[in-house]
Design a protein around this nucleic acid. Structure first.
Length: 387
DNA sequence: AAACAGCGCAACCGCTGTCCT
DNA sequence: TAGGACAGCGGTTGCGCTGTT
């Protein structure tokens, strides 16, 4: 049964008493409050205006953007200051301008297609069609062929996130928690990459899981460690060896990944910076030429006696930190100024544990970005096999 | 019994990347 | 080089469920 009721469709029962009595499961069903209009906390976190690049002389000064056209840039800014946003390109600006000029072309006629929750019948219709014919390389055309009165994007989403075989829902293990936690701290909210390391999980599911549960768990752990004055402790359960699939993807350039797992976990880490609400790093195109990054083993050493992560000698540590900044923060940190205010509430501590764990999956950062580039952030078994 | 409040998560929205002409 | 078309991604929304008052 779909959980959601279609927009504008009132509940079949009138009174609360009736509602309470109409639950098919037999349990009480009370209240039901919508939070319409209440902005989510994340919504309030807006990226600040960007700083101008010396090379950009236009009024907009779209920083660190790949916009070369002053004409497009100025036109866009005059039209809508909000267009002053990261990752703009000439191409995207031109498209935005065109959309503003003529009205955005919808991907489908939203008035005539069904929206909202999927019925079991629709699910079966889509499932059987895809199993018989595949996607056919065109989601837009699929609904018509399958006899579904749905938008192609909606069909795609439903299939990838729900109907696709071997999808897992809920029941996250400690190991999965650690993987998500570690990768998030390293690469930010690149959910498709993170999900690709978790067989059966979708990016949407991982994202929801992080936002609703794991983030709180992580924050509570960090807060607890801060309150006790002890260094932050990572999740207790060590990740076992990589799954065959993950191992295969990782073993190409990794000779030490699984070995490093054997040394996990550090019981106490000297400082950890979890970048909650961190902006996603710039996309892979900007990382095709990577800064030289030392192997992960050089990042930190676990003191077997004390269980404490020992700092490297200052020069090496600085070099590592600088290299990592090059990889992760090329557009966020510049001239000693941090543009996005994230992670500060953890006291500006340095993360080593997260790097350690993520290094198990991506023994070095070059491999990680290489994997991202190779997969184009496509989760395993998703679009690659369907489109 | 009823109302309130918090949460989970499916679905949507808007944008970017890529391919092609 | 410009632009159309489509896939994919990450952020956000909002409905239903459930515990509490």
């Amino acid at each position: 049964m779909p959980k959601r009721r279609a927009k504008g469709q009132s509940h079949p029962c009138r009174t609360t008493a009736e509602r309470n009595g109409c639950d098919a499961t037999g349990s009480r069903r009370l209240g039901g409050r919508t939070r319409r209009g209440a902005p989510s906390p994340r919504y309030k976190i807006r990226r600040p205006a960007h700083h101008p690049l010396p090379s950009c002389t236009c009024a907009c000064a779209p920083v660190r953007l790949r916009v070369r056209s002053e004409r497009l840039c100025s036109a866009a800014y005059k039209l809508q200051p909000a267009l002053r946003a990261p990752r703009r390109t000439d191409r995207s600006l031109a498209r935005l301008l065109a959309a503003a000029d003529m009205g955005r072309a919808p991907c489908c006629d939203k008035a005539s297609v069904k929206r909202g929750p999927w019925s079991p019948e629709e699910d079966e219709q889509l499932r059987s069609y895809v199993q018989r014919h595949g996607i056919g390389g065109n989601w837009i055309a699929l609904p018509q062929k399958a006899g579904l009165n749905r938008c192609g994007k909606s069909c795609r989403l439903r299939w990838l996130n729900y109907l696709r075989p071997n999808i897992k829902h809920g029941g996250y293990t400690e190991q999965e928690d650690q993987i998500i936690w570690s990768l998030y701290s390293s690469i930010g909210s690149r959910w498709s990459i993170i999900a690709s390391k978790l067989p059966g999980r979708t990016d949407n599911d991982v994202k929801n899981y992080w936002n609703t549960k794991l983030k709180k768990k992580a924050m509570a752990a960090v807060a607890a460690s801060a309150a006790t004055g002890r260094a932050f402790a990572a999740p207790a359960t060590p990740p076992p060896a990589l799954s065959p699939a993950a191992s295969a993807s990782s073993s190409v350039t990794s000779s030490g990944g699984d070995v490093r797992f054997a040394a996990y976990p550090p019981q106490h880490h000297q400082g950890l910076t979890m970048r909650f609400d961190a902006p996603a790093p710039q996309r892979r195109q900007q990382h095709t030429e990577l800064a030289p990054v030392p192997p992960a083993a050089a990042v930190a050493q676990l003191d077997a006696t004390s269980g404490v992560w020992a700092r490297q000698p200052a020069p090496a540590s600085d070099a590592v930190a600088a290299a990592l900044d090059d990889v992760f923060l090329p557009d966020l940190v510049g001239g000693g100024e941090q543009l996005f205010p994230y992670g500060d509430f953890f006291g500006g501590l340095q993360d080593r544990a997260a790097l350690e764990l993520s290094a198990c999956y991506f023994p070095n950062m070059a491999e990680m970005w290489g994997a991202a580039a190779a997969s184009d952030a496509k989760p395993q078994g998703l679009c690659n096999t369907l489109t």
